[in-house]
Amino acid sequence: MGYHLNFGVVWRNFDLLLSGLALGLGLAVVAIFIGCWIGLAAAFAMNSKHATWRRIASGYVTVFRNLPPYFLIVFAYFVLPRLGLTFGKIETFIVTLAIYGGAYLTEVFRGALLALPRGLREAGLAIGLTEWQTKAWLIIPVMLRNAFPSLGNNFISLFKDTSLAAAIAVPELTFYARKINTETFRVIEIWLVASLMYVAACYLIAAGLRFFERRLAIPR
């Protein structure tokens, strides 16, 4: 084969790769933050008394869970400008990822809402809290604790999906990996390192999440 491994090229560009990884993390954090609000709203909508809200939320979930995220990104970046909706690359990507992730998060929150003890809302109302107050102080805190493991998994998924930003030339890890690959042809080294960086990042995120889960847990 005549291929000699030479990691030097990769190490020289390591700071670039690392910055790409950090950007990816940043994109994921903002996306999940926005996505959580969307997901919470949709989850409550799916539980609402009004059929219209239920149908809208349900439709949103069904549509966006069945569409490829890459398709959505291409659509948002290449098609929407034709309608006059042009935004920056990063903004477009984050919002698209948030809307995509929100569909999954809706299911997470909906499940967590259903798992709530029934009397919780009524106990809140019984001491005189309004619906909004019971939601804010009782329902959402308990529900978030229930949802935490699934939320964590979704975050890791979303983080991996930030690699798609490379397709619209956002300077995250995969973009740099591809750039270095085409410039230096150190195929094995660069993809091995890029992959390991993602794996390590996911592992660290998972470990961090487990730590927080224990700290947040209600003592029993």
Binding site: L164, A166, A177, I188, W191, A194, V199
Partner: peptide, 23 residues
């Protein structure tokens, strides 16, 4: 664990560059 920690996009690109150009 290695494959699941890697984004699909990276797997596809890596596979493409590795398997169409080397060996």
């Amino acid at each position: 664990d290695f494959v699941r920690g890697t984004p699909v996009f990276v797997l596809v690109l890596a596979s493409y560059y590795l398997l169409t150009q080397i060996g």
